[in-house]
Design a protein around this nucleic acid. Structure first.
Lengths: 212, 212, 212, 212
DNA sequence: TATGAATGAGGCTTCATTCAT
DNA sequence: GATGAATGAAGCCTCATTCAT
C-alpha cells in the first residue's frame, strides 16, 4: 500500500517536514511579515539554500501550512450537529472557540498573512468556505422544513459565521476583555443563544411587540 | 485663547498636514506593510528627511491616521437609533455598511496594520471600543426595561458588532460572493433581521423542537 | 583495433553524449553566461551530479563543444576554392554566410563565451586559426606567382577573414539592417567584390587621384 | 551660463563621478559579467546602497559608460578625411587602431557586455552606427562622382568597418600574433592598402585578367 | 556509474534612519 | 524648518559543487 521509500526519499521527506515544522513555529511566534526564510532555516537547522529545494518562497510555505493547519482547525471545530439543535450548536461553537484558543498563534498569523498577498487571501477564503457552506446548507434545510422563517440563508450563514469567527479572534487571539472574565463555556453559551434566536426567532420586522 | 501662530509654525502645520494626507493616500493604495516612508514623502512632495521631523516612523503616522480616520468612520457609521427599533437598527447597519463600502481601502489597511504592532492593535481596539460600548449600553437598557430576555449584554454587543464588522469586511472589502448579487440594502435588511431576532427573540433553548 | 567496450563504458559514453547534446541545446538558447549546470542536466534528463562525472564545469563542456561544433562550422564554411577565382571565392563566402545564418545561435554563444575565460578565448582562436591560415596560404601562393601585388599576406588574411566574419555576425546574428533587405547571395556578391578587389587591386597608394 | 551648483549638488555630482570612474575601472579590469555592484562601490569608497542612488543596476552604469566612452572613442578615431585620400584613410585607420590599443580594456568589456543584454546590444549598435554611416556616406559620394565603380555602399561600409573593427579587436585586444611583430603603423598601412583597393579597384567580377 | 539532497558563498536590491548643509 | 545624500543592515534568491547512498 505505502509506496516503498528509499532512504534518500525518507531523508528528503524528513527535511521537508523539519522545514515545515520550523516554519510553523516561526510564523506563529513572529507573525507572517516578520518571518524570514533565514529564520525558518535556522530553526530547522538546515542551510539557507535547502529551503528553496522545497518551497518557492515564504508565501509558498505559508500556503502549504494554511492548507494543512487551517483545514485541520476547521475540521476540529466541526461538532456532529445531531441530537438537540441547541446543544448541537453549542457544542459546535464551543469546539470552534476551543480551537481558536488552542491555536491562537496560527490563527493570528493566518489573519495577518491574509492581507499580504492575493494568493493567501484566496487560500484563506477557500479554506473557510466549507465552514460557511455547511451553515448555509443547514439553514436551508431548516427553512425548507418550515422550522424557521424565510431568510436569506447565504447571507445569514456568512453573518453568523463571521459573528463567531471575529468574536473568537478579537477575544481569544487579541485578548479583548470579556474573554478574561468568562469561561469559554459561558461565552459559547451566549453566542449559541444569540445564534439560536437569530435563526429560530419569529420576531417580525415591525418590532418586538408582535412577538408571541 | 488660541496662541497666535508664527509663520514658521503655520508652515510646519501645513507640512505635517501634507504628510498626513499623503500617508493616508499611500497607505490606502499600497497597504500598511508595502508603504514606505519614501513613498509617503514622495507623495507629499517633501524631502525624505522631513518625514522624521513630524513622525517617529511608519507606525507613528499610521497611529495618528487611525485616530483620525477610523474614529471618523465609526462615527459616520452611527445612525441616531431613535424611532422604530427595527428601522433605527437597519439604518445604523446600513450606514455602517455604507461606510465600509465607501472607505474599503482604509479599512483594509486598518485591518492589516492592526497585525503589525501591538501599539496599532491597541489603538484599533480603542477606536472600536465606543462602537461596541454603545451597543452594550443599548442592550443593557433593553434588558433593564424587560423588553428583551436576560442576556450577557457585553458578550452580545461584541458578538453582534463582530457579525456586522466581519461580514462587512469579508464582503465589501475582500469581495466575497454574496455581496455581488445583493444590494447593500438587501444585505442590511438581512443583517438587521438576524440581529433583531437575536436580541428580541424569545425562543428558549429547549424551544425550537416544539415549533417545528 | 577498437577496444571492445563493456556495457558500462557504452552506457557512460551514451550519457556523455546526452549531456553534450543537451548542453549544446541549452547554450544556444540561453547563451553562455545564462546557462547553468542545472539547466543542462535537466535537458539531458540526468541527475545534477552526473554532470560532474564527465565535465569539470561549464567551461569544460563548452570547450568540448567549441572543438566539435565550431570546427565543424568552419569546415562546413570552406568551399573547394578551385576553378574561376572569383566564383570560387564567392562560393566560399556564400558558404560561410550560409553557415552563420543556419547556426546563428551557436555563433552568438561562441562569441559570447569567448569573453568569459582565457581558456575559451584561446580555444576559439585555435579553432579559427586554420580558417585564417588557409586564406594566408592562398594569398601567399598568389603573391608568389606574381598574380597579385606584394602585400602582407598574414595581415591581409586576418583582415579579410575578419571582414566576412564580423559582417556576418553583426548582420546575420545581431540582425543589423542591410541583411534584411538583401539576399544572402547579394551580400555574398558584394563581399566577394570587395575582397577580390582588395586582393587583386593594382591601385597604388598614389593612384586614385589620377583616376578621377 | 553654468547653473550655480549648491555645495550639496557638487557633492552629489562628485559621488556620481566617483562611482562612474570606479565602475569604468572595475569593468575594464574584471570584465562585464564578473563585475559586481559591490566591487564598484568598494572601488568608489562609497556604501553599497549609494550605488542605487545614481544607477538602477549594473546594466545602467554600463550603458552610461558606453555612451560616454564609446562615443569618445569613435570620435577620437575619426581623422579629418581631407587631402590625399590614401593618406587621409590611413590616418583615420591609424587613429582607430590607436584608440583600440589605448582603450583595449574598455573595448573588450564593451564587446563582452554586448552579449549580456538586448539593451546593451542596441546601445552598442547605436554608438557604432555613425561610424559606419560616415563610411557609407563617403563611399556614396565617390560612387556619385564616378571615382569608384558601382557598389553597394551600405554593405561595403559595414564590411570595411567590420574589417578594421574586428581585426583591431582580435589583434589589439585579444592579442593575436601578427600584432606582436608589426607596428601599428605597419598594420594600419596594410589595412589601408586593402581598403583602398577594395574601394578603388577596377577589377571586374570575371577575374584579374581584365585589370588595366 | 548514477543519483539528487544538502550546502553555503555570493550577488542583488530596498529602505529606515542619520546628519551635514 | 527643510533638504536629500549617504549609510549599511537585512532579506531575497541562485547555483556550483560535494558526497552519502
Amino acid at each position: 500500500m505505502a509506496p516503498p521509500l528509499t532512504k534518500r526519499q525518507q531523508q528528503a521527506a524528513a527535511t521537508a517536514e523539519q522545514l515545515l515544522a520550523a516554519a510553523r513555529e516561526v510564523f506563529v511566534t513572529r507573525g507572517y511579515v516578520a518571518t524570514t526564510v533565514g529564520a525558518i532555516t535556522e530553526a530547522a537547522n538546515t542551510a539557507h539554500g535547502t529551503f528553496y529545494l522545497y518551497f518557492r518562497n515564504k508565501e509558498d510555505v505559508f500556503g502549504r501550512l494554511i492548507k494543512d493547519v487551517a483545514a485541520e482547525m476547521y475540521r476540529e471545530a466541526q461538532a456532529p450537529w445531531t441530537g438537540d439543535p441547541f446543544e448541537a450548536l453549542e457544542l459546535a461553537i464551543r469546539g470552534y472557540l476551543g480551537v481558536f484558543a488552542a491555536h491562537g498563534g496560527v490563527w493570528r498569523c493566518l489573519m495577518e498573512g491574509l492581507h499580504q498577498s492575493p494568493v493567501l487571501e484566496a487560500m484563506w477564503l477557500d479554506v473557510r468556505r466549507p465552514f460557511i457552506d455547511r451553515i448555509d446548507h443547514n439553514l436551508a434545510s431548516l427553512v425548507a422544513a418550515g422550522s424557521v422563517r424565510e431568510l436569506d440563508t447565504t447571507v445569514a450563514a456568512h453573518a453568523l459565521g463571521s459573528m463567531v469567527e471575529w468574536f473568537a479572534f478579537t477575544h481569544l487571539v487579541l485578548g479583548m476583555p470579556p474573554a478574561e472574565r468568562r469561561s469559554l463555556d459561558e461565552v459559547a453559551h451566549s453566542l449559541t443563544d444569540l445564534w439560536f434566536n437569530a435563526v429560530y426567532g419569529r420576531v417580525d420586522a415591525k418590532g418586538p411587540r408582535s412577538t408571541s
